[in-house]
Amino acid sequence: MTEIIVVTSGKGGVGKTTTSANLGTGLAMMGKRVAMLDADIGLRNLDVIVGLENRIVYDLIDVVEGHCRLKQALIKDKRCDTLFLLPAAQTKDKDAVDPEQMQKLCTSLREEEFDYVIIDCPAGIEQGFRNAIAGADRAVVVTTPEVSAVRDADRIIGMLNANGLGSPKLILNRIRPQLVKKGDMMSVEDVSEILAVDVLGIVPDDESIVVCANKGEPAVLSDNSLAGQAYRNIVKRIAGYTVPFLDIEKKSGFMDKLKKMFTK
């Protein structure tokens, strides 16, 4: 059975695409058959984050409009042979597809017997959002511990509920434990309590994410990335395992000690 998960946030720049790339890659690393679908028509980026930008021949719009078969447009990942990407079109805009066509596309993906389909939703609450959620079974909401991002997440959670995607799970991204401790950043508990949703995972603010994005290799592939570890835990939870939350405070304390050792 295929499970279709849409990764959404409302606000832009909180880490939807990075999260989609890491969830997709992480699940594939567990041996699952995964398709990542970039629903950000006109502003595609998932291809660059996973380093497959040079292999694109056909895109989502080509499939929807029948210019090619679904299998032709699915790009096989360089590192995981059970991972595929369906890139967004770069030259069209969000009105080029409608929710009904997206539902059909999701049905076709189910027929390809994927274990998981990860949909990277565009920012905003308009047509692109409605397209991305149309065929999904469940939703993951990404936010950061900032007033603006949490506010938008609240709006998105309301819209997901209204569209039959009740009880979405939360990923809190870019947590900085030192700031939380100092009383200058909202904690995981603060955000989950305000939004009244279950937390799927917490991802610390980690420089390795920048390096990974530069290289086009999701952090989940790198053993010494703290964010990568956080994403590995999240994919295990998605696959049904119980994994305790990453102790980011302890870990970053250790990293700080390491850094001090090298800087001294």
């Binding site: 511990p145 949490v150 506010r151 939380v180 200058d184 950043m185 904690s187 603060d190």
Partner: peptide
Amino acid sequence: SSDSRQVAKDRLK
């Protein structure tokens, strides 16, 4: 510390 965490929470609510 300024405890801007609490300020953020209150504004958000």
